[in-house]
């Protein structure tokens, strides 16, 4: 069974008399352990796409099945639960809680699962070590570099063991060296069995992935496997 199944998804914004079709009829299937990049120029609908996949936003029309569940009929609180259980978000601007240190930021999603402090801390420490930040757990976000902040955000996404990791331009605010490190981390996570969807407009980043979906004006324009995928199959 596919992890994600979209049929005829549209998202329209009414701007006065004009209708902006941010998504204009999307059909796509994503399977377990896919490593997928959405690419396309600015304004092509990539972020809108990711927000709908992450159940942050609701489509104007169309069906969305996540893990076999119809997401359409869920209310806000049920969507919160889905985001908490199934989805790990990684944002371009990191979106860490500014007054909480790295550890507390990573523990935050577990609070909504009513997990006790001890276990929360243990899980968060594991996730932080996984991204190589085991020694920075008591730093506040503004005491960390951009790359370190993104690692905290990745740890926060990983800590809940989600079925899917969604990253919207995760390296958009990072220098090239840090970008490579973060992408290597993504490659490792994929090898460990995670499902990753990355939004980017940089080709080098997309080349890390095994499948590239090109978007234009709210439509899917091309959907193809990369060399990596064929290499992976060959091995």
């Amino acid at each position: 069974m596919s992890l994600i199944n979209l049929t005829s998804i549209t998202k329209h914004y009414e701007m006065g008399s004009q209708v902006v079709k941010a998504l204009d009829g999307i059909d796509i299937t994503v399977n377990k352990n896919d490593y997928l990049a959405f690419i396309g120029s600015s304004g092509s609908g990539k972020s809108t796409m990711l927000n709908i996949l992450g159940c942050l936003d609701k489509p104007t029309s169309g069906q969305y099945h996540l893990n076999g569940k119809n997401v359409e009929i869920l209310d806000q609180n049920e969507l919160s639960e889905i985001r908490n259980l199934e989805i790990g978000f990684i944002f371009q601007s990191f979106n860490l809680l500014p007054r909480a240190n790295a550890l507390n930021n990573v523990m935050q999603p577990l609070i909504y699962r009513s997990i006790g402090f001890r276990q929360r801390k243990e899980m968060a420490m594991d996730a932080l070590s996984r991204v190589g930040l085991g020694d920075r757990v008591d730093h506040l976000p503004n005491q960390l570099s951009g790359g370190q902040r993104q690692r905290v955000a990745i740890a926060r996404a990983l800590v809940t063991h989600p079925s899917i990791l969604l990253a919207d331009e995760p390296t958009g605010n990072l220098d090239s060296k840090t970008t490579v490190e973060i992408m290597q981390l993504f490659d490792e996570l994929h090898k460990e069995g995670h499902t990753l969807i990355v939004v980017t407009h940089e080709n080098e980043i997309a080349q890390h992935c095994h499948r590239i979906v090109e978007m234009k004006d709210g439509r899917i324009f091309n959907d193809s496997a990369t060399e990596k995928a064929t290499l992976g199959v060959a091995v």
Partner: peptide, 15 residues
């Protein structure tokens, strides 16, 4: 924004 972050990572209204 903080509220948005919390909701994105799973906070329900009552939280």
């Amino acid at each position: 924004r903080e509220i948005g972050i919390c909701k994105a990572i799973g906070a329900k209204s009552h939280h």
